[in-house]
Structures are given as structure tokens and as C-alpha cells.
Computed example of a mutant assay.
Amino acid sequence: MKKRDLSIIKDLERFRVMSRDNIADLYFKHTKHPYSSANSVLKRLVRDGQIEVSHHHSPYVYFPAGSTMKKNSTKIPHYLTLVDIYVKLQPKTFELEPKFKKGLAEPDIYTVIKGKPFFIEVQRNVYAQKVMDKKIKRYEALYFHYDKLPYVLMITEKKYEINSDIVNVIQVSSIDEFLTKIESGK
């Protein structure tokens, strides 16, 4: 098996699920026809039992072999958003769902962007303000526990009222919006 194929499998294990487009962007961008090349390799890996595929999505989504995630899980779009963030940033530091003591914040991602540490929260659902306030309190508890806190980048369609002198939250609707903001210096 090629090193690239092993890397695809390793990324599927890390991210839980990836779309054909994610895989093409990461591994086949240098080819003349990235999507066709990705399709060919992914079809072979599925045929050989190295990975699994779901036809419930377009483009198809892929899982590591033996995945326990349902092929039509409602969590798939959330995980695909995490992969999309990785594809767009391609940072040196990228930790999925870092774990802290029980009761503290549970960010989706820890990464470093332009030399600054960030926790990234992907909010696909709309939460009541009370729920969001509790989430911010968990971030404040994390600060008091570790005496340091990265910026919190919250990707959400709904803008929440954040009342904290401790937690620095940046709310955007997409990673593209955030990247545009930092490119323009805002």
C-alpha cells in the first residue's frame, strides 16, 4: 500500500469521517484531475476493505474500516466541518477534541493560527442563551484551572451575547469569514 493511502486511512481514523472533496484537497490537489484521482483511490480502498463509504451524502463520505458511526449519523456534518477547517488552515498544530478535567470546556479543536493559540467551537445548533452562558463559564473555569486561555473562535450562524472579562470569543459564521478578517487585519 502506498504511503499516501496509509495517510488517508490515518486521517479517516483521526477525523472519523471525510468527504471525497476533503481527501482530494489534501492528497490529490497536485494532480491534473484531483476528484477523479481521489475517486479511483477511494474506490480501491473500499473494495479492499481498508475503508468504508456512505452513499447518503454527495459527495460520498468515507470512514475508517470498522467504524461504529452510523453511515447516516446526524453528527457527520459536524465532523465534516472540522475536517474543512483543517483543510483550509493546514496548521502544524491541530488537536481534535482536546480533553481537560471533567466540568471544564470541551472545545472541538485546539490549533495555532498566525502564532496565536485558538480553541475552535463549531456550533451547528442554535442554543438558548442560558446554555451558551454555561459554556462560557466552563471556559472561564478552564482559565482558572490552567491560568491561561487561548482565544475562542466560535463558528456559528447565531451571534450570542458573551459576557466575560476572561474569555476572548470571536464569533464568525464560517472559517472563511474568519480567514478573510485576519487577512484584512480586522
Score class of each variant (00 low, 15 high):
F118M: 10
I120M: 12
K99C: 00
N125S: 15
F94A: 10
K101L: 13
Y110R: 13
L96C: 01
T93G: 00
K114A: 15
V112K: 07
F119D: 04
R124P: 00
D108M: 04
V122F: 15
F119M: 14
E106N: 05
K101P: 01
A105K: 03
P98Q: 12
P117E: 11
N125A: 14
D108W: 02
E106M: 09
E95M: 06
L104Y: 08
Y110S: 10
V122H: 14
E121P: 06
L104R: 02
F94K: 03
R124D: 01
N125D: 09
G115T: 07
P117R: 13
E95T: 14
F119E: 11
K114T: 07
F119A: 12
T111V: 11
I109Y: 08
F100V: 06
I113F: 11
F94Q: 04
L104K: 05
A105W: 02
E106T: 11
N125E: 15
V122T: 07
E97D: 09
K116C: 04
I109H: 10
E121Q: 13
V122M: 02
E106S: 10
K114S: 15
F100C: 02
V122Y: 15
E95R: 09
D108G: 04
K114P: 00
F118V: 11
K99L: 10
E121F: 07
E121N: 13
K102A: 07
F100M: 10
F94C: 09
T111E: 09
D108L: 07
I120L: 13
L96Q: 02
K114H: 14
I113D: 05
E97S: 09
F119G: 04
G115M: 04
P98D: 08
K114G: 01
G103N: 02
G115V: 05
E106H: 05
I113E: 13
R124M: 07
G115F: 05
K116F: 08
K114M: 14
K116L: 15
G103C: 00
K116M: 13
E106F: 00
K116S: 11
P117G: 12
E121T: 06
K99V: 15
V112Q: 12
V112W: 03
T111K: 06
L104T: 04
Y110D: 06
G115R: 09
F118W: 12
F100Y: 15
A105Y: 06
Q123M: 13
E97L: 01
K101A: 10
I120Y: 06
I113H: 10
V122A: 13
F118D: 02
I120N: 07
E97P: 00
F119P: 11
N125M: 12
Q123L: 14
I113G: 06
I109S: 04
Y110H: 14
I113L: 14
F94P: 04
K101F: 07
Q123C: 03
R124A: 01
E121S: 11
K114W: 09
K102V: 02
G115H: 05
Q123K: 13
N125K: 14
E95W: 02
K116E: 15
T111L: 09
I120D: 10
